[in-house]
Design a protein around this nucleic acid. Structure first.
Length: 724
DNA sequence: GGCATGTGTATTTTT
DNA sequence: TACACATGCC
């Protein structure tokens, strides 16, 4: 089936003249062209914002295929799977072939997952492993934390989420724990021994459960690169490795690339140090800076011609970066002349900011710019809460990217837990989650049942004894009386999903034969439908407003209908989760035109004609959470730069002056904000300033006058006396 | 051992 | 605000 594509474009024979230059090469500027037509060996492309990075990568793929490289021998590592798909699509458009779909594209994590399933047995990696996301990791940390009884000491101990951050940071930066604690989490330093103990146990439990967390995927991939046999095989499998957003990779990722390219040196990385915004994930700009040293003979190409933004927008963005402490790439140029400067809109408060944003959006819509080409960007997921309400009220459809994912909703996780134990019966955490749903079952009963099912094994490489599922079906542990009925129902539901008839006589001798013997597993959608039938009563009892949440479950079924295999459905949901759809504006994809709301992080790599950046106040951008060190402050600056450079023609930056606090809720307790420190007077010269409504001016005046009026009035009490 | 109630606290960005 | 944790009662 693949062979059909293999020779779709015949390789040029050595002596043959280069007379079949594809016409799309002519659409590239000299620098882009140099990168695209680069021969063998390492290539570093430093590509500023909007310089045609995606185009260059897509053309490179197309070029390689045109040169006769088999698409499945190309690895394309991107930040999201969407990005990989987009590049492949564009490459196909250019070559006119649909062969490029075979390119190995996706995130480091997704590709690791695939490779581990192929080459994993070189390191005795169980074939049925499942992947856990960050909140699963936190749950496991929490479980271990309570088991070790750290809470009984009087000192406050890091929360489970904090433990996950420390763990992840340590692993990803490949630094010693004490160093990480000292530098990033100084308030946890005294607990280092307990933390180390928890981490050790955490690792063991993951192994026993056949579960990998995000970090494991990278770590194990890295180790696999060194495993005899598998390491070479993986390296040989790919003629070319292409990496996007290289400034946001971390130490392990660069090590993986080094090992993957030990013998074959064809590697191309693309990045921009001015856009590095993932240091919280231990990403380091060092990767891009040290690349030439790590890969001797690197050719370096710099892309500085910006095709996206108008000249005034670019000038303002450059001005923001001019204040940066350290900078490697030069200022960008643009030929897109415009008289429209970016607009800085001062608003009295958040409510008025919302109104102002809506007004501008509708104004551009009337001018003929559809919602699809407009976006609202913000620092943190919840920054758009109020705006979402306002948009819903005005019936402006939108879709929100970033922030809390829909798979993190408790009820979605519940449904996934069922699917996960079907996929990997040793997934202790999922069993635990399911058991706690049952009436009258708490931590103690759950642990007992997990033990009797044989879910917990320690260090056994292969399952000892029958699968926990078979024990459940044929030798079920006893549940507390209050849970009897539900327990029996659960058994039937899971058996149905496995295609096992519990009414039939149980296999006498060896339970394992029941699993391996011929049985017809119902299709994935039916399984989910069956599980939902079991789950719905629990769900209705447990959650306040089941109707909204029910939509998510339906959504889950919707997504599942596009999958044939349960395994890939479960992994994709963790590695490439869809964004939330239970928005107030209703199912946005039914509308043909919708507005994008996005965190700045999730807006990376995107562009829109009109960009609205909200909450440009100090404490929001920069987030005051990030200000503990100078590096954090610098990264926040780059974040604003990334946000601004997403705009093609119009850029609006909104600054609400007054923030209300519900905390000390009494009347209209509020505080006054300062404009983002990055919008200094120098930078503001590049903006057109515009107050949203009249009373702002008065308000600003009042603030600038401050106490002088009061003082003057008091002064008059005696100065008049004296003068008269 | 489970569950309801009460108290306190921390609050970003994502694979 | 909302969630995690502790306490005390069934």
């Amino acid at each position: 089936m693949m062979s059909k594509f293999l020779h779709a474009s015949a390789p040029r024979s050595p002596g043959e003249p280069w007379n079949m230059t594809p016409e799309w090469l002519d659409t590239l500027n000299p620098a882009q062209r140099e990168a695209v037509t680069h021969g063998d060996g390492p290539l570093l492309v430093v590509a500023g914002a909007g310089t045609g990075k995606t185009k260059t990568l897509a053309c490179r793929v197309a070029y390689l295929v045109h040169q006769g490289v088999s698409p499945e021998r190309i690895m394309l590592l991107t930040f999201t799977r969407r990005a990989a798909a987009e590049m492949v699509r564009r490459a196909e458009e250019m070559t006119g072939q649909n062969s490029t779909g075979c390119v190995w594209g996706g995130t480091f994590h997704a590709v690791a997952n695939r490779l581990l399933r192929i080459y994993g047995n070189a390191m005795a990696i169980p074939g049925d492993f499942t992947v856990m996301d960050q909140s699963d990791a936190a749950d496991l940390m929490g479980m271990i934390r309570t088991e070790l009884g750290v809470t009984k000491s009087d000192r406050r101990f890091p929360r489970k989420e904090t433990l996950v951050s420390i763990y992840s940071r340590t692993v990803n930066s490949q630094e010693k724990l004490d160093r990480v604690l000292m530098r990033q989490f100084p308030w946890c330093r005294d607990e280092i021994e307990t933390i180390a103990k928890i981490f050790e146990s955490y690792t063991r439990r993951k192994r026993d459960s056949h579960v990998f967390d995000y970090d494991d995927l990278l770590l194990v991939w890295n180790a696999l690169c060194d495993a005899p046999g598998a390491g070479e095989a993986m390296g040989d499998r790919f003629d070319h490795v292409l990496v996007d957003e290289y400034q946001d990779t971390n130490a392990i990722q660069s090590q993986i690339l080094l090992r993957l390219r030990r013998t074959r040196k064809n590697i191309m990385v693309v990045g921009d140090d001015a856009q590095s915004i993932y240091s919280f994930r231990a990403a380091t700009v060092r990767n891009i800076l040290d690349f030439p040293a790590q890969f001797p003979g690197t050719r370096m190409v710099t892309l500085e011609q910006n095709y996206r933004s108008t000249q005034p927008i670019l000038a303002a963005s450059n001005a923001v970066m001019d204040q940066a402490k350290e900078r490697f790439t030069k200022n960008l140029r643009s030929d897109r002349i415009s008289h429209q400067r970016p607009v800085l809109i001062t608003c009295l408060d958040e409510q008025r900011q919302c109104k102002s944003v809506c007004r501008k959006i509708l104004m551009h819509l009337e001018q003929g710019i559809p919602l699809m080409r407009q976006a609202v960007l913000f620092r943190a997921g919840h920054h758009s809460d109020q705006l979402e309400v306002e948009l819903a009220r005005r019936k402006i459809p939108f879709h929100k990217f970033g922030g809390l994912k829909f798979v993190e909703a408790a009820h979605v996780k519940d449904m996934l837990a069922f699917l996960r134990i079907l996929e990997n019966p040793f997934d202790e955490l999922s069993w635990y989650r399911i058991l706690l749903m049952l009436e009258g079952v708490g931590p103690k009963s759950a642990q007992r049942i997990i033990g009797e099912l044989g879910v917990r094994r320690s260090g056994a490489p292969a399952p000892a004894g029958p699968s926990p599922l078979l024990r459940l079906f044929f030798k079920p542990p006893v549940a507390p009386p209050s849970a009897r009925e539900q327990w029996a129902e659960l058994r039937v539901a899971l058996a149905d999903c496995c295609g096992i008839d519990l009414a039939a006589p149980p296999p006498a001798e060896n339970l394992d034969t029941a699993m391996s013997s011929r049985r017809i597993e119902p299709p994935l959608v039916s399984q989910i439908e069956r599980l939902r039938r079991f789950y719905e009563p629990i769900f209705e009892k447990r959650y306040e407003n089941p109707t909204i949440r029910l939509r998510d479950i339906e959504q889950l079924e919707q997504i599942a209908s596009t999958y044939r295999s349960r395994a890939s459905f479960v992994t994709d949901l963790t590695l490439d989760p869809p964004t939330s759809t239970s928005d107030l504006a209703g199912p946005p994809f039914l509308e043909e035109d919708w507005l994008t709301l996005s965190t700045i992080h999730s807006a990376k790599g995107c562009e829109w004609d009109v960009v609205h950046i909200i909450h440009a106040a100090d404490g929001m951008i920069p987030s005051d959470m990030a200000l503990s060190d100078e590096a954090g402050e610098e990264e926040e600056r780059r974040l604003l730069y990334v946000a601004m450079t997403r705009a093609r023609d119009w850029l609006y930056v909104y600054f609400p002056i007054r923030y209300y606090h519900r905390k000390h809720a009494r009347g209209d307790a509020h505080s006054l904000a300062q404009l983002s420190r990055y919008l200094s007077p120098t930078v503001r010269r590049y903006f057109q300033e515009m107050p949203a409504d009249g009373d702002v001016t008065a308000f600003v005046d009042a603030r600038e006058r401050g106490l002088t009026d009061v003082d003057d009035a008091v002064q008059r009490l005696w100065s008049d006396e004296i003068s008269s």
